[in-house]
């Protein structure tokens, strides 16, 4: 029971991170392999504001989100849009995007190593225990989970109700047809990319309250987010959330019962099963 709840709490934060990646890959069609570095940068920001200004990470995210939004928008417009324009096919864009975002991720790691050094960083924030169903959990994990639920819920509603959100989902389904019904695809793709980056950075700030990060851990989170997005189905918000919770629970089981060093292996086990049996995602329909 304790493992299940810890897993669900972790999965909630994973859902937020994967949602960020899903906005970038599913909606604006850029496979962003620098996603994990945005997360780590968000974590660094939370760490820095807490240690230098003792500003609560829950408040930091209100500063972080707009900054990350602008930074990611600039990355898309300056660096990635030329690739979108130059690409003759989806496959070529994918290869170019993968190489470019790899480049960006290494540059980001290099810069973070130069500014913060290679040390692990963690801080204690709201470590007070909370009792739930006769088991104790750290308050920071619960708060991160609640914040993730609120943000995920808001995003879900926005994507389903607002005009911009629905247009973004239309791009995810078919970029060519959405242009025909008068959707400004380049503008909204940039918006989705920037929003995805902001969500990821916020996820990073939340996750840094209870996990230890260092400058080069980004790639692990990128991988986990990718596994979640593929498992849930690319562009599928509901699938992402379910997949994230599943991964969170599985990882916690493996970490508690077998070995904490095997969390990525656990994610890979899920990934292989999905690739073999449901490559279209948990809720996806098989394409004919």
């Amino acid at each position: 029971m304790g493992i299940l709840i810890t897993g669900l709490l972790l999965g909630g934060t994973y859902a937020l991170i994967a949602m960020g990646l899903n906005l970038q890959y599913g909606m604006s069609r850029i496979m962003n392999l620098a996603n994990g570095e945005i997360l780590v940068a968000g974590g660094f920001a939370a760490f820095w504001f807490w240690t230098a200004g003792s500003l609560s990470p829950l408040l930091t995210i209100f500063i972080l989100a707009p900054v990350a939004f602008v930074v990611n928008w600039l990355i898309y417009v300056i660096i990635l849009r030329p690739l979108v324009k130059r690409a003759r096919s989806r496959g070529q864009l994918e290869v170019d995007a993968i190489l470019t975002t790899f480049g960006l991720s290494f540059v980001a790691v290099g810069i973070m190593l130069a500014t913060f050094g290679g040390d692990y960083f963690s801080y204690s924030y709201l470590l007070s225990p909370v009792e739930l169903w006769s088991e104790t959990y750290a308050l920071n994990r619960i708060l991160a989970f609640v914040a993730a639920v609120i943000i995920c819920g808001a995003l879900y509603l926005w994507l389903n109700i607002s005009r911009a959100g629905m247009s973004i989902r239309a791009i995810a389904v078919s970029p060519d047809s959405s242009r025909l019904v008068g959707i400004d695809v380049p503008k909204l793709a940039a918006l989705a990319f920037a929003l995805g980056g902001a969500v990821t950075a916020v996820g990073g700030a939340l996750i840094s309250t209870f996990l230890t990060l260092d400058a080069s851990t980004g790639v692990i989170f990128t991988l986990k987010a990718l596994v979640i997005v593929i498992m849930g189905g690319v562009g599928d918000v509901r699938g992402t959330i379910v997949a994230a919770l599943l991964l969170g629970v599985l990882e916690t089981f493996v970490a508690r019962l077998i070995d904490p060093g095997l969390t990525l292996a656990a994610a890979y086990l899920l990934f292989i099963l999905i690739l073999l049996f449901r490559p279209q995602g948990l809720f996806g329909r098989r394409q004919s």
Partner: peptide, 15 residues
Amino acid sequence: NQTTLLLGLSFLIIV
């Protein structure tokens, strides 16, 4: 310490 930066820039130059 700058080998990662070199890797990153190389990727960008190639693309």
